[in-house]
Simulated scan of single mutants.
Amino acid sequence: MKIKAALDRIPGGMMVVPLLIAAVINTFAPDLLRIGNFTEALFVNGSSTLIALFLLCTGAQINVKSFGVSVGKGATLLVTKWVVGAAFGLIAYAFAGENGLWLGLAPIAVIAAMTNSNGGLFVALVGQYGSKEDRAAYSLLALNDGPFLTMVALSIFGAMGFVDGMFSFVSFISVLLPILVGMVLGNLDEDMRKFLDKGSSMLIPFFAFSLGMGIDFGAIVEGGLSGIILGLLTVFVTGTAGYFVFKAMKWNPIVGAAEGSTAGNAVATPAAIAAANASFAAFTDIATVQVAASVVTTAILLPIYVGFLVKRMEKKGYSFEREAETEV
């Protein structure tokens, strides 16, 4: 039975198929794999650990002489994602109706969803279509986790003042450290670099499945059409913006497009901001379900969109096998 060959024929198959299978299980039989011990640890709660190990293996492939390229790519992704998301948030505030909503969307939900990206999804897509230095760009993307950049946007709009303590530098370092450990090991020992290289692609379907166990298709229903619209905007606006920015920089455009998602932790952003400023409390509930719907919508749609872009580029002669194997 050619399981791997079948997955390879599907755009992003090594990531999207396990993720969707897990999402179906989590939606209709959420307790099926939540039986404790090794089963639950691997298939339900393992995403953070597996992604951390993936980052360590990836970090081992980075030559310190070219690490600056990865930082530049990460900064470009971060700025592009934030600027586009904040701009749409401003539009939402400017054209909101008497009920405070724009196209049925809470402006705070627009900013939270469009400025925050799913790191696991990014790592999976870039792990399949990007180079080792592209994967290392993730280290800088930790800055868009949580409410920090949403609050920066709100403060710029004059909607609220900057609130200290909402961003933890330790959290940023905690994402960066596995990559740094891998870099040290790989640069000290070439054999260790080759050994850890084997782990990068092997881990993708396993942490993708674990990520899927955090997705409930019911969130789309609860968030309604407005939440789906928010997911569509996130994929096609922020993802496309990243694609063209990277293309203009002569980098792999798929890496830019891979940022077009909403992270699961963005669901908590509206409540966190309301806790810091009570004036947003009235929109907390609707914003939360809309962001949740965007999380699910982008998790499903972004790999499909990336697959479409990959096919389009391959028709023009672009080789992703060469890109993914590029040494840095």
Results as ranks from 00 to 15, higher is better:
114 M>K: 04
95 F>Q: 13
90 L>D: 07
81 K>Y: 02
90 L>C: 09
79 V>T: 11
119 G>E: 14
73 K>R: 06
85 G>Y: 01
100 G>H: 11
90 L>M: 14
96 A>F: 04
92 A>K: 03
119 G>S: 15
101 L>V: 01
84 V>M: 06
85 G>P: 09
91 I>A: 14
130 G>M: 14
100 G>P: 12
126 V>S: 08
102 W>C: 12
98 E>N: 13
105 L>T: 11
91 I>L: 15
111 I>N: 01
79 V>H: 08
94 A>I: 01
82 W>P: 02
109 A>V: 01
111 I>L: 01
134 D>R: 13
126 V>L: 09
117 S>M: 14
122 F>I: 12
111 I>M: 11
73 K>Q: 10
131 S>C: 05
97 G>V: 06
125 L>C: 09
122 F>R: 02
97 G>P: 00
87 A>W: 03
107 P>Y: 07
129 Y>D: 06
123 V>C: 15
131 S>L: 09
123 V>Q: 13
120 G>Y: 07
102 W>Y: 11
110 V>D: 13
117 S>I: 15
74 G>F: 08
117 S>E: 07
119 G>T: 15
96 A>K: 14
102 W>F: 15
101 L>F: 01
121 L>M: 14
76 T>S: 14
80 T>I: 00
117 S>V: 15
87 A>C: 06
76 T>Q: 08
129 Y>M: 03
124 A>F: 10
112 A>W: 07
83 V>R: 06
83 V>Y: 02
120 G>Q: 00
105 L>V: 00
133 E>P: 03
107 P>R: 07
126 V>G: 09
99 N>D: 14
111 I>Y: 01
107 P>A: 13
108 I>W: 04
86 A>N: 08
126 V>A: 11
102 W>Q: 10
134 D>M: 12
121 L>I: 11
96 A>C: 04
129 Y>S: 09
134 D>Y: 08
111 I>H: 06
119 G>A: 13
74 G>M: 14
115 T>M: 10
110 V>P: 11
108 I>Y: 05
82 W>R: 08
121 L>Y: 07
98 E>Q: 12
123 V>F: 11
75 A>W: 05
100 G>K: 09
71 V>F: 15
72 G>I: 05
110 V>W: 14
126 V>H: 14
130 G>D: 13
88 F>Y: 04
85 G>L: 00
134 D>E: 12
88 F>H: 05
92 A>G: 03
94 A>N: 02
106 A>E: 15
